[in-house]
């Protein structure tokens, strides 16, 4: 069973909740799919047993010994990545999308595609089972692909080790890495917070999970910071037929747990918030 924890808005407490979920069982696969900003390794300090790298998108490069500055490539490039600069054709690497069209149409064969930065896929053991995470090279584009690799690896490890539950910590937003994170999972948990921004982003996120027909649950984190908005969120979810899985109180101890490299479950096993999280996870698993 794959359970993905996401949130449209960043900083709602997604990773802390994923970490707490992962600490509830001693046989779990934890997949950190927030490949832009993977963080759970900080808490769980996994012992890495396998590391592989893969090349992301390619970038176009001009061989100036062949280039005649004819500008044909400029006309074909749809990403505004090629321009004349002081009479010379120049590629802007940041805008290059790696579509390869310029290299295909260049009459002088002066453009080739070169490999861009290396992304990493890491996996190993941690104190509650197995962990997989990705590390996107700075500025890299292919985050959806890396998310897919992390998920595939997590599924393979789960199968090999006879582990039933995979907890996925997802990225913020609603774009390609999020779509890759939730496609085909069994449950999506959306973590939100009671604010105007939180509510706006929650609606956009639920629109996405709805369009993918996924079993979706909502957790309102720090619900007591603004009970008026919490009530509005509950009302909205009821109206949309989405289950509010839990309401978690604001607890400064969550930050203290993080600073101590522990999940809240490990740091304060008897805390009220831990009990609520436990009930929430069981509700999903027994659904």
């Amino acid at each position: 069973m794959e359970i993905a924890v996401i949130s449209g808005k960043g900083g709602t407490g997604k990773s802390s909740i994923s970490a707490a979920f992962a600490s509830e069982h001693d046989k779990i696969v934890l997949a950190d799919c927030d490949v832009d900003a993977a963080n759970l390794y900080i808490i769980f300090e996994p012992e890495i047993t396998e590391k592989s790298s893969f090349i992301g998108a390619q970038k176009a490069e001009i061989d100036y010994s062949k280039c005649t500055n004819c500008g044909t490539c400029i006309d074909y490039c749809r990403f505004d990545a090629i321009k004349f600069d002081n009479g010379k054709v120049v590629i802007n690497e940041i805008f290059c999308d790696g579509c390869k069209l310029c290299s295909r149409i260049c009459p002088e064969n002066a453009i080739s595609m070169i490999d861009n930065a290396e992304n990493l896929l890491l996996s190993g053991n941690f104190r509650h089972g197995k962990m997989v995470y990705g590390r996107l090279a700075p500025g890299e584009e292919n985050s959806g692909r890396l998310v897919n690799l992390v998920r595939d690896k997590a599924k393979k490890i789960a199968e090999q080790n006879n582990i039933e539950t995979i907890i996925i910590d997802g990225p913020p937003g609603i774009g390609c890495p999020v779509i890759s994170t939730i496609t085909g999972v069994d449950h999506v948990v959306v973590v939100t917070e009671p604010s105007l921004s939180g509510m706006h982003d929650l609606k956009r996120t639920l629109e996405l999970t709805n369009s993918f027909n996924l079993k979706t649950w909502v957790i309102i984190n720090k619900f007591d910071l603004n009970s008026e908005f919490s009530d509005k969120i509950v009302e909205y979810c009821n109206h949309e037929g989405i289950d509010v899985l839990a309401k978690l109180p604001y607890d400064k101890q969550i930050v203290d747990a993080m600073v101590n490299c522990k999940s809240i479950t490990e740091y304060l096993p008897d805390a009220e918030i831990v009990k609520i999280i436990k009930i929430a996870l069981n509700k999903i698993i027994n659904f």
């Binding site: 960043g10 900003a37 805008f95 996107l136 500025g139 985050s143 937003g173």
Partner: peptide
């Protein structure tokens, strides 16, 4: 800016 360090961030800060 959008969060993260991948393409949406790059296209903003560029």
């Amino acid at each position: 800016s959008p969060p993260g360090t991948s393409c949406p961030f790059i296209q903003t800060v560029v």
